[in-house]
Design a binder for these strands. Structure first.
Lengths: 341, 341
DNA sequence: TTGTATGCGTTATCAC
DNA sequence: GTGATAACGCATACAA
């Protein structure tokens, strides 16, 4: 019950604490005999080293802090899965924090992670982060930092992202090549960097194929419930324009697409005959809805993996007092073509 | 860059380290004047206490360890969300570990958490955990432990679960009352405690309503891909029995239900007219598929919340050297009735 | 009100 | 090959 320490082992074996420590860590300058005795006793007494003490002494914690906007999100839970698996494989533990898209929380959490002496931080910004003092504080302290998915050009650190603009461009180009001519856009607030880039990709594809950009078929949702919005704006599209005029819909998230799909389905509007739908993210559900949804595959798990790998590399570099080199990693996306287009 | 410590502050202000410490912690026995000076300097220098040192001194880390079988799972990511939010509100951080349903990993992770000196552990067992030495080790060390969802009667600790049997009983009773008479069962391996209990609930409902239990309409899947299995066994049900004979299907997970639904949809078998479907868990997707799926609502977020609350209470009790009282908390489920029944 | 002294459990340096 | 000793940064009992 009362924790057993190096001292206890030392006392029991009548040797010094330092010898015990060395024996347990496999130092070469300990005789096989004592080493064996120590290990055996440690085993017998179920000795478990106090990492906190070790951390204090060695000045590193083998722990990284991860801030995620929202865990319950197919994409982010995938990212987290990737992060945790790779971290674990490299002997690092993960402290997970959820900002819930609140700036104040993000600030507080950064401070907590600094106090915890984490060896590095992995973060995705909230949609409302416009000031960066807290993040700069991480950097002035020399704590390695990597941002993923929602990043900012205001911070000079390594970043792991997808090319939203290109991905949207690819999706819309695909629709155009497939023969669709009046492609509506449904997006969330364009202040969000990602959504804005997807909008840019949409526009670029149109212009590339000499299709006139028409503001009247560009819809920006006003609330946060993407599924609801999908249904609502699908209805709006139909009422604003005779359905023969809009023949395809590109949405910035799968959830909106599925919402729209639900509306069309229950109103006898055929997908993709009457209107095609293209989503974004490749959430699991997009493969199982009817009709299954064409979408942009956004590989969350891989993004998580790459992010930690980068962070771990920077941590190692810092330990060796070497210069770290800032990277910008773009995870390739792909089109997942299904029944809705 | 070089971390600043209490010593630095003390030196700067020409006072002792202990006074600085007390000032920062708001001890009553420090004059307002020095307190103010200390706080101001700390602010100015951006002082951030080294929690690791504090942890070593105080013998607690304000950290809890959480082991989850699989993060990328709507249910579990909800649980984690609940855990993290409540933990944070109480000043605790969460170290998240994923066992990936591997027993060896679970063992290793328990050891890691012990070494990390976490104040408590929250865990859900892998499907393959049949030995419990590692968990007993947690208890002999006096580390508060709470199990959630996948629990074992072999460990005497507080548990937070749902009543699987009752929930299944409710669902099947509902189907019977609605007039369905030949209700098939589709489940995963019955060695999994939860699935087995759901099966028991199914049987009990039948017997309660004097419907003869018929083994020929009980299907146990053989692989792990629930969605695939849903489709596969839906087909099997149709081919084994003329469709007029089975008029409803109860599955132990939403994913199987959705798979089955997909098969019926694409084979002109009408839901619920030809066959009704009832799922289990209330994953988000069940509300958006067509037809939307009736299911058992299994409140993950709440389970997460209750679990930490219990754990935190036990941690507090332990700190005050009071007896902890083992609890068994059953989170109520409910039926979510939708279009599929 | 302030300061002194000590310890939390490890690791690492240096002497023996 | 082994051990004494100091240090990591903070918290607290006790003395002043």
């Amino acid at each position: 019950m009362s924790r057993i320490t190096l001292q206890d082992l030392a006392y029991e074996l009548n040797i010094s604490v330092s010898t015990v420590s060395k024996a347990l860590k496999g130092y070469p300058d300990v005789s096989e005999k004592t080493k064996k005795a120590v290990v055996e006793l440690a085993d017998k007494l179920n000795f478990s080293p106090n990492i906190v003490a070790s951390n204090l002494r060695t000045q590193h914690t083998k722990t990284i802090g991860v801030i995620v906007p929202e865990i319950v999100h197919h994409f982010f839970s995938n990212v987290i899965g990737g992060i945790i698996n790779i971290a674990e494989q490299n002997g690092y533990m993960v402290i997970l924090l959820q900002s819930n898209e609140k700036f104040e929380l993000e600030q507080k959490q950064i401070n907590l992670l600094i106090q915890q002496q984490v060896d590095g931080i992995l973060m995705s910004l909230t949609a409302h982060t416009t000031s960066f003092e807290h993040i700069k504080r991480v950097q002035t302290r020399g704590i390695p930092l990597v941002m993923y998915d929602k990043v900012s050009k205001n911070i000079n650190c390594s970043k792991v992202i997808i090319d939203d603009k290109q991905a949207a461009y690819d999706a819309v180009s695909y629709l155009i090549r497939k023969g669709y001519k009046r492609i509506a856009f449904l997006g969330g607030s364009l202040t969000a960097q990602n959504f804005n880039n997807r909008f840019l990709g949409y526009k670029e594809a149109l212009s590339e194929f000499r299709i006139k950009y028409d503001e009247s078929i560009v819809y920006i949702t006003d609330s946060d419930d993407e599924y609801e919005n999908g249904m609502k704006y699908a209805e709006k599209i139909v009422s604003d324009h005779s359905k023969s005029k809009v023949d395809a819909l590109f949405t910035v998230t799968d959830l909106m697409a599925v919402g729209a799909s639900k509306y069309f389905n229950s109103n006898e509007i055929k997908i993709p005959e009457d209107i095609a739908i293209f989503g974004f993210s490749n959430w699991f559900m997009s493969s199982i809805v009817t009709p299954s949804l064409s979408t942009v595959n956004q590989p969350g798990y891989e993004m998580g993996e790459k992010s930690v790998e980068l962070l771990l590399k920077e941590i190692a570099l810092k330990k060796e007092r070497q210069q770290i080199e800032i990277q910008r990693l773009v995870i390739p996306t792909s089109l997942e073509i299904r029944e809705s287009t």
